[in-house]
């Protein structure tokens, strides 16, 4: 059972209005100390705005953000005097934020110096950050000459060089190939394991479901779900997916056959990557029976597979609901 003291941050009734437009309203999120919290939402849902408000870059129209101060042993508002809490956060935005003209080391030294860290600790922090992001061998390389993955790692290193209590990551794997994504998520996990609380915003729910302790789903300017990924799947994964591929890529005959099966209720039919995906709430037996019937005398079908829907699909279905 979770205790109230476990909350590192409490975001209460937060509203963000930018340029007269309400971006988010009545946002209530509790961030636990040491957890990795995923912020999920479609593009434009307000994930980045929320992160920017948490670090004080965007103004908060209403509500409050409370920090559970271990020193004062009570919750204190960070909005009252945000400048005192800037060191609490590290932030890695969607686009890397460092000086491309400077070397890795120069960037880290510079950003470390902005956080009023004593010189000896600063040196230790830089070494530690370099090790974490595995850029030690490239510390003298000019930032703009680094590869995409290295740039992201440098950006994260810049965000953690003062070893903040909370690290905020905004779409850390956008525009990256799968291998780089795996590297970056591995790095994020390592940072989290080192004791840093992480809030990561992403619209790839499938990617974060395995590393985030909890997810917060933001939709229609408010929090629609807050809980573990498993809990989300349990609530929303009520259908099976029947993936069918044909040799000639034509599905009209097959779809007619399926639709003519009275025992099979089809919830949705999608076409993706040259195959059709049929969503059905029926039991495994019913589905298997239907597949047997379909394959009988049908030579055009090259592949049939029954799977659980992905988190992304669940998220899509949730949003479309």
């Amino acid at each position: 059972m979770r205790k109230a003291d476990d909350d590192l941050l409490r975001i209460g009734n937060l509203a963000i209005i930018l340029g007269g437009k309400t971006i988010l309203e009545n946002i209530n999120i509790n961030v636990r100390d040491g957890e990795m919290l995923g912020l999920v939402g479609v593009s434009g849902a307000g994930k980045t705005s929320l992160l920017n408000s948490i670090i004080g870059y965007y103004p908060v129209a209403r509500g409050d953000i409370l920090y559970n101060s271990p020193r004062k042993k009570r919750l204190i508002s960070i909005l009252d005097k945000f400048s005192n809490f800037r060191g609490l956060f590290g932030f890695s935005a969607q686009n890397p934020s460092f000086y491309p003209e400077l070397s890795v080391m120069e960037n880290l030294e510079y950003f470390a110096s902005l956080y009023n860290i004593p010189d000896d600790i600063k040196v230790q922090n830089i070494e530690r950050a370099l090790k974490l992001v595995k850029l030690h061998e490239h510390k003298n390389a000019i930032a703009k000459n680094l590869s995409g993955g290295m740039k992201k790692r440098l950006d994260i290193a810049c965000a953690i060089v003062h070893f903040p209590k909370v690290l905020l990551l905004d779409e850390p794997t956008s525009d990256m190939d799968p291998l780089l994504r795996i590297q970056i998520w591995g790095l994020v996990e390592d940072i989290n394991k080192s004791g840093t609380t992480i809030i990561v915003a992403s619209h790839f729910l499938s990617e974060i479901e395995h590393i985030c302790d909890r997810i917060v789903l933001i939709h229609n300017k408010r929090v629609e779900f807050e809980g573990s990924p498993k809990h989300f799947r349990n609530i929303h994964a009520k259908t099976k997916e029947i993936h069918i591929a044909t040799r000639d890529g034509k599905y009209s005959v097959i779809l007619k056959k399926i639709m003519d099966m009275p025992f099979l209720e089809v919830k949705r039919v999608l076409k993706k990557k040259g195959r059709i995906i049929i969503h059905s709430k029926e039991s495994d037996n019913v589905i298997n029976n239907a597949i047997s019937k379909l394959l009988r005398g049908e030579t055009n079908i090259s592949d049939v597979e029954v799977t659980n829907p992905s988190m992304d699909m669940l998220f899509k279905l949730f949003v479309e609901k």
């Binding site: 670090i55 004080g56 870059y57 800037r86 956060f89 932030f91 935005a93 686009n95 890397p96 934020s97 460092f98 000086y99 491309p100 960037n107 950003f111 902005l114 956080y115 810049c158 965000a159």
Partner: peptide, 9 residues
């Protein structure tokens, strides 16, 4: 690109 990081420091 580093402006943002300066601003939040």
């Amino acid at each position: 690109p580093a402006y943002f990081r300066n601003a939040i420091s």
